[in-house]
């Protein structure tokens, strides 16, 4: 266990921005999922799960394939 903490402490200068970037990606996608209830496929719960739990790839998948078109009305 000791070594793990040591690892983390040694690499903090990388871990902090890395986690920050992943959070930016996740939060941006999450906000978009929640504010735009139209998806090309799938539903809100599915996309929330994908965006939150699949790091990096999840948000990309959402923005490229999941984001709905303009409203038709």
């Amino acid at each position: 266990m000791n070594t793990n903490w040591q690892l983390l402490a040694d690499n903090l200068p990388i871990f902090i921005p890395l986690i920050l970037l992943e959070l930016i990606l996740m939060v941006t996608a999450l906000v978009h999922v929640l504010r735009h209830p139209h998806y090309r496929f799938g539903n809100r719960i599915l996309w929330v799960l994908i965006v939150v739990f699949i790091q990096i790839i999840g948000p990309i998948l959402y923005f490229v394939f999941g984001r709905g078109d303009e409203r038709r009305g």
Binding site: L7, N11, I14, P17, L18, L21, I24, L25, T28
Partner: peptide, 26 residues
């Protein structure tokens, strides 16, 4: 959000490169 995604993703790769190199032996 295309540019944002591109920028964030390549920056993540940029950070992971030295990190993985450093952690591999451990």
């Amino acid at each position: 959000y295309r540019f944002l995604i591109l920028a964030v993703v390549v920056l993540i790769f940029a950070l992971m490169s030295p990190l993985i190199a450093k952690l591999t032996p451990d």
